[in-house]
Design a protein around this nucleic acid. Structure first.
Lengths: 158, 158
DNA sequence: GTATGAAATTTTAAGGTTGAAATATAGCAC
DNA sequence: GTGCTATATTTCAACCTTAAAATTTCATAC
C-alpha cells in the first residue's frame, strides 16, 4: 500500500476530492437522465417520472400502495398522487381500495400498462447499455459495488 | 488478466450489469441531492437550483451570459430565466446588457451574493464531505476518474 | 361509543423543468 | 438598406417536485 499523503491523516479522501466526485456523479446522472428523458418523449410520448412509476408497479403484480411507490422512488407522497392520476387517465394503471382499510389505495398496472411498459423497458435497457458502453467491465463492476455500499450505509438516514 | 466470460465477447460489462449500475448511480444521486436540498432550505432558506447558479456565477467574476449558465448547468434556457430572476429579486445577482450586443444579458454576483455564496459553499462542501465519508480515498479517486472519462466521452452528444 | 392520536392520502402554494413558440437583435448577402 | 438567417433570450403550457396543511379512515384507551 501507498503511504498516506501529508495533507490528510483523517479517514478517507481529502475534502476537495469528495466534492469533485460528487460534482461528477451529479453531472453524469444529469447527462444520462437528459438523454433518457428525451428519448422516452420522442419514441413513447411519455416522461421519466411516469416510466419510473410504471417500472415500480411492474415489479409488484399484486399492486402497491401510494406510499410504497413514493418511498421506493425516493420522491414525496404528493408527487406520486399526480403521476398516478395521469397514468390512470391514460389507461396504464388502475386504483382500488384495499379490503378492510379504506385509507389505502392499491395501484396496479392494467394489461395495456404492462404491455406499454414492456416495450419501454426493452428500449430503456438498450439505451442505458449504449450510454454506458464506454465503461470497461471492471470499472462498471467496481462503480456498482461502491455505490451499493454507499446506498446501504444511508438506508433511512436521509 | 482474467479471461472474458462466455456470456459476452463485446466490450464492457453485459447489459444487466450496466442497467444495475445506472439505477444505483441514480439512487445515490437522489439520496445525496435530497439531503443537500433539505439542508440548504433549513439553514440558508434557498434551493439547490439557486445554489447551482450562484456557484456557476462565482467562478466567473466578469459575469456569464444566460446561455453560458444553462449550458454549464445542463439545464434549459427558459429554466435559467426564472432562477436568475429570483436571484436578482433577492439581491444576489445583477443583470446588465453587454456593450455592442443588446441580445446578451450579463449576469454577475452582487457583493451580497458573493458573501452569501461563500457561506453556503463552505457548508455545502462540509456536507458533501460528510455524506461521502464512507468512501475510502482510493475508491473516491477511482470513481471520480471513471466518471470524468465518461463525461468527456459524451461531450456535446446529448 | 367517544375521544384521541396515528396512518394514508390528497390538496395547496411555491418553485423548478422542459420543449416549443415568440421576440428582439445581429450579421450578412445583395 | 432590404431581406434572410442565425443568435440570445423570454414566454408559455404542461408537467414535476417539495413541504406543509387538510382530509379521511383506522385503532385504541377509556
Amino acid at each position: 500500500m501507498v503511504s498516506a499523503p501529508l495533507t490528510s491523516v483523517r479517514s478517507g479522501a481529502p475534502t476537495k476530492e469528495r466534492l469533485r466526485l460528487w460534482i461528477r456523479l451529479l453531472r453524469a446522472s444529469r447527462l444520462i437522465e437528459a438523454v433518457l428523458r428525451e428519448r422516452l418523449k420522442a419514441r413513447f410520448d411519455t416522461t421519466l417520472p411516469r416510466f419510473d412509476v410504471l417500472s415500480a408497479l411492474d415489479r409488484a403484480p399484486e399492486g402497491m400502495a401510494m406510499s410504497d411507490i413514493s418511498s421506493f422512488l425516493l420522491v414525496s407522497n404528493g408527487n406520486v398522487t399526480g403521476i398516478v392520476e395521469r397514468l390512470v387517465n391514460d389507461g396504464m394503471a388502475s386504483r382500488s381500495k384495499r379490503d378492510g382499510d379504506r385509507r389505502t389505495s392499491i395501484v396496479k398496472l392494467t394489461p395495456a400498462g404492462k404491455e406499454a411498459f414492456a416495450a419501454m423497458a426493452e428500449a430503456h435497457e438498450r439505451w442505458v447499455d449504449e450510454l454506458l458502453a464506454g465503461l470497461p467491465e471492471d470499472e462498471a463492476r467496481a462503480l456498482a459495488a461502491t455505490l451499493k455500499t454507499f446506498e446501504s450505509n444511508w438506508e433511512g438516514e436521509a
